[in-house]
């Protein structure tokens, strides 16, 4: 019984993840018990073989320079696209734009030509529809990001 309990703690013992009384208790047991010593020897051997260095040889400084370069490039592209969106969707610009577009829409709808040939109207002709689509897309992007974050949070919990 004692050995079974000890053996379940040997991985934590290897990584020194036990409090000091437990650490010394196991150390003492390993001195006297051949079976547990053998099990511990196997754990140690396995984990030594899964060594860090085996994954890949140390990368050159060029690799890291290039790595940083790529990050900086991606970050500045990110900054650019963000500032474009923010600039376009800034409330001080968006509100007058939407108001203007709404007035334009009212004029168009109330004009006799359009009320007669309403079916000819396509979304490409209407600036407000385009802008609304743009806003919708932007909200969709935010929603998707939110959704992704939620899923990730759930996975972290689960």
């Amino acid at each position: 019984m004692e050995c079974k309990k000890i053996q379940r703690s040997l991985v934590n013992y290897y990584y020194q993840e036990l409090d000091s009384p437990a650490m010394s208790k196991i150390a003492g047991h390993l001195e006297t018990c051949v079976a547990c010593r053998q099990t511990y020897g196997q754990i140690k051997k396995t984990l030594t073989l899964v060594a860090k260095e085996q994954v890949e040889k140390e990368k050159s400084s060029f690799f890291w320079q290039d790595f940083q370069h790529q990050v900086y490039q991606a970050v500045s592209a990110e900054k650019e696209s963000l500032s474009r969106w923010r600039g376009f969707l800034a409330p001080r610009r968006l509100v007058p734009a939407l108001a203007g577009a709404l007035i334009l829409l009212l004029i168009i709808i109330s004009s006799p030509r359009w009320s007669r040939h309403g079916s000819e109207m396509t979304s490409a002709d209407l600036p407000i529809v385009q802008e609304l689509e743009l806003i919708e897309n932007y909200e969709l992007i935010q929603d998707l990001e939110l959704l992704e974050n939620l899923q990730e949070a759930e996975q972290l919990r689960g």
Partner: peptide, 11 residues
């Protein structure tokens, strides 16, 4: 624990 166990089995 289970991960280490699996690796030990491989050994």
């Amino acid at each position: 624990f289970r991960a280490v166990q699996r690796l030990q089995e491989v050994l």
